[in-house]
Simulated scan of single mutants.
Amino acid sequence: MEKSRKKNLKEARTLQVWNVIYDVTEVVISLIAGITANSSALIGWALDSTIEVISAATLGWRLHGELKGMDEEKVKRRKKITLYVIAASFTLVCLFISYDSITKLINQETSNWSTLGLIILLVSLVVNPILIYYKRKYGNKLDSPALLADAKDTFICLYQTVVVLAGLLLVNWLGWWWADPVAALLIVPYAAKEGWEAYNKAKDINYNAE
């Protein structure tokens, strides 16, 4: 393995470790805030962060395998599994957000203000662009579709952060009870698109299973 690629692999793996640590923190805080405030958008955002944990951890596993000198066929297998995990995770989140948001729209359930939710959303606005930059950087350097797909996942989380923050403020400032579930639903088309792309990329990877 050439020296520069090995260096990039190590740095990409370290990035994924920090990604997992931050996202676990984000999931715990946003879930507490979302459940306490009865916010579909915050809960949906927490679930998207859960996908990032799964995606980053699986991708770290795949990078670790290549770093340890795993043969090309096994690396391809891990790439394929990683992309399938990302695609499946997106699908589950789309289903949950759709169900939860539509139910709250029908029942006209409103969310409450959450200072804790506001804080973690603002922190995410700072952290996620940094993660996106480095995931794209190493994804291009390593020619890794899985790492680039993971960067898109983080971009969706960033987009969702802006939407959820807007919904939270609209509910509080203008009393628009429907802004919270609608904010959550706006994430679904993007998540579905990225999930579908990850699935198609996984199908295109061929390897010898023997």
Score class of each variant (00 low, 15 high):
residue 79 K to A: 03
residue 94 C to D: 06
residue 58 T to P: 02
residue 109 E to F: 06
residue 84 Y to K: 13
residue 131 L to Y: 08
residue 29 I to D: 02
residue 42 L to S: 03
residue 90 F to V: 04
residue 128 N to K: 08
residue 119 I to D: 03
residue 37 A to Q: 03
residue 64 H to N: 12
residue 48 D to V: 07
residue 64 H to T: 04
residue 139 G to E: 02
residue 29 I to S: 00
residue 54 I to R: 06
residue 37 A to T: 02
residue 106 I to R: 15
residue 116 L to A: 13
residue 87 A to H: 01
residue 86 I to C: 00
residue 60 G to K: 08
residue 89 S to K: 02
residue 130 I to S: 08
residue 153 D to Y: 08
residue 115 T to M: 15
residue 48 D to A: 07
residue 72 E to R: 15
residue 141 K to Q: 15
residue 39 S to D: 05
residue 137 K to L: 08
residue 72 E to Y: 10
residue 68 K to H: 12
residue 137 K to P: 05
residue 53 V to F: 02
residue 36 T to R: 15
residue 42 L to V: 08
residue 59 L to D: 01
residue 99 Y to I: 13
residue 106 I to E: 13
residue 51 I to V: 14
residue 63 L to R: 03
residue 125 L to G: 09
residue 133 Y to Q: 10
residue 96 F to Q: 06
residue 112 N to D: 14
residue 116 L to C: 10
residue 131 L to P: 01
residue 144 S to T: 05
residue 37 A to E: 00
residue 52 E to P: 01
residue 77 R to M: 10
residue 102 I to M: 11
residue 99 Y to R: 15
residue 77 R to P: 01
residue 74 K to G: 06
residue 149 A to E: 03
residue 84 Y to Q: 13
residue 39 S to I: 07
residue 94 C to L: 13
residue 102 I to R: 09
residue 115 T to N: 14
residue 87 A to W: 02
residue 84 Y to P: 01
residue 157 C to F: 07
residue 67 L to P: 01
residue 32 I to P: 04
residue 62 R to K: 14
residue 43 I to G: 03
residue 34 G to W: 02
residue 113 W to R: 15
residue 34 G to C: 09
residue 77 R to H: 11
residue 128 N to C: 09
residue 85 V to N: 00
residue 37 A to P: 00
residue 134 Y to K: 11
residue 62 R to M: 01
residue 104 K to N: 07
residue 49 S to H: 04
residue 33 A to D: 03
residue 117 G to L: 10
residue 82 T to R: 02
residue 103 T to N: 15
residue 133 Y to K: 14
residue 41 A to R: 04
residue 63 L to Y: 01
residue 39 S to A: 10
residue 26 E to M: 15
residue 75 V to E: 07
residue 85 V to Q: 00
residue 108 Q to Y: 08
residue 34 G to E: 04
residue 82 T to A: 05
residue 132 I to L: 13
residue 137 K to A: 07
residue 137 K to I: 07
residue 131 L to R: 10
residue 62 R to V: 00
residue 33 A to I: 03
residue 139 G to T: 02
